[in-house]
Design a protein around this nucleic acid. Structure first.
Lengths: 251, 251
DNA sequence: CATTACTGTTAGATTTGTCTAACAGTAATA
DNA sequence: TATTACTGTTAGACAAATCTAACAGTAATG
């Protein structure tokens, strides 16, 4: 798993840990690093050797560990990624701090420089106007916590007093498709539980679906998605919205 | 690297690839999987054996490969993560499709179930109102492309005609801190280039900074951040905004 | 039927990152 | 000074994921 700076995620973690320790302790030891990363001290030694070879840490046997200029630079970039992701998760998505930290830890090695910059800019964009920030952050948080479906949710917080999307009218529900025809999924409506269940059945944005047989209120619909046939009740198929331009006769 | 479902990221990739192939080809072979994941066919065989042991794929030597029920379920959850992340990156952050796909590939194994749900809800929240969607997506895109700093940017697109944040007045710039005092970074102002450079020097949200010496227009300021002392011009230190409640005398 | 082309498998090597257990320094303590 | 406690290193093992090279089937072609 080699990253953009030619380091593995694990080595980036070691650099980041050293930086963090140096931020408070003025001295970094093998033990501190092992504790910080929850690995055994025996794992730290070979990592330090490797980083010293690469000219990123100052290390000699049984001595304090320091960062070189370039090591510090990489460590700071990694820490910045971490902080940015965690901030997005807590401040925008409303995750709790611990969960956000765990997620950020796992993702920080994988996000590209470009996406990083965009994410940073998004946070600045939201912070730039207190009304927008409030609308996005508390509005979304409220929407999420109340478990509302998107279309009703906006009415709670939307300053535009918009009653509903008119462009949704262009979309065709899977329930109203002609049997034997296919369409591309562009949106999953319904409440969060239904949406989650549909997503886990393969109804993913951009996927082709084929309606095999129409059902009724009591009789399930038969559909084919991602190469798999399955039966679904009417309310589920009704929540699957298709792009009308994508509809084709499959027979 | 073990994930929530007890699979490694690599095995999840194999499942996802099989699902994708089955979505179009009705039959999956070792060769297809190898091509899809850009690995050698010799790497596919042991992965299939492992997945068959775990009861996630149907596999017997030299035969077509299929997914079991639970294998399909995991594959679909993984694909849903991928699609969601990619959609966030393209639709909200404005990344190009290829970059978004690469990033999503790398992150999909690491994001938690909870963050997934929140991200999905965020997209629905934005889609729920066309005005909000436009404000966020095209407003942000314009802001990003024009390289505007957050506070000016909002004026371009903000429907609230808000001239600037009044709560920013509560923040103290690092430049106006008393020498020997510390504060916690809560925001980095300035244009994108300056912000990026400061972030890469260690000025990260939530970090403590210490002002060592005041400068002037021509003489650099001396500060200490993340255990490291450095000199910075006045415009850079002025862009670092601190939480006033965090300011302490360090001497 | 033999050849050729292709697919899939095996064997063996390599890289990376981790662990445990044993050992080696170092420094305070009895 | 001998003991103890702690830190750090080494050796050796292991798991995961990949590769190359060699080999084994299978099926179409000449």
């Amino acid at each position: 798993m080699v990253m953009h700076n030619n380091l593995t995620g694990s080595l980036e973690d070691y650099l980041e840990a050293i930086l963090k320790i140096l931020g408070t302790s003025s001295v970094a030891r093998v033990r501190d690093i092992a504790d910080e990363l929850h690995v055994s001290p025996a794992s730290v030694t070979p990592a330090m050797k490797r980083l010293a070879e690469l000219g990123l840490v100052r290390y000699s046997k049984r001595n304090y560990i320091g960062l070189t200029g370039s090591g510090r630079e990489i460590a700071m970039r990694t820490a910045a990624r971490h902080s940015l992701l965690a901030r997005f998760l807590t401040d925008v998505l409303g995750s709790d701090a611990e969960q956000a930290d765990t997620d950020a830890c796992a993702m920080e090695h994988h996000i590209s420089e470009d996406s990083m910059e965009r994410l940073a800019a998004l946070l600045e964009f939201l912070y730039a106007c207190p009304e927008l920030e409030k609308l996005m952050k508390t509005g979304f948080a409220r929407c999420f916590d109340e478990g509302e479906n998107g279309s009703r949710c906006s009415k709670i917080v939307c300053p535009f007093l918009f009653e509903g999307r008119n462009d949704l009218a262009d979309l065709v529900s899977l329930a109203s498709l002609e049997p034997g025809h296919t369409g591309m999924i562009v949106r999953i409506a319904g409440d969060r539980a239904l949406r989650k269940s549909l997503i886990n059945k393969g109804f993913i944005h951009g996927t082709e679906v084929l309606l095999l047989r129409r059902g009724t209120e009591s009789l399930p619909y038969a559909v084919k998605v991602a190469g798999h046939e399955l039966d679904l009740p009417k309310d589920a198929v009704s929540a699957v919205l298709l792009n009308p331009r994508s509809i084709n006769d499959e027979t």
